[in-house]
Amino acid sequence: MTEQALRELVMSILKSIAPEVEEGELVAGKALRDQVDLDSMDWLNFLVAIHERSAVDIPESDYARLATLDDIVTYLVRKTR
């Protein structure tokens, strides 16, 4: 998948969990949970869904590095190469 496709995938998963998100208002380099109300369960569901839909394995020990939209997309790009 291209970077653009991965970004769209992540956004669509985010919107399935938090449909109230306005895409235009998100700052890609800022921590997602500072911008969107996601409790621990939402966050876990979000990361699990990304793993399932991108087929990229995301070990729990990497969760802490995935704070921003850019972090997540960069991580997926690297792991799908």
Binding site: A18, P19, E20, V21, D37, L38, D39, D42
Partner: peptide
């Protein structure tokens, strides 16, 4: 879902 989350928050 979006409506409820906006009013009530994720928790």
């Amino acid at each position: 879902l979006g409506h409820a989350r906006k009013r009530l928050g994720a928790a």
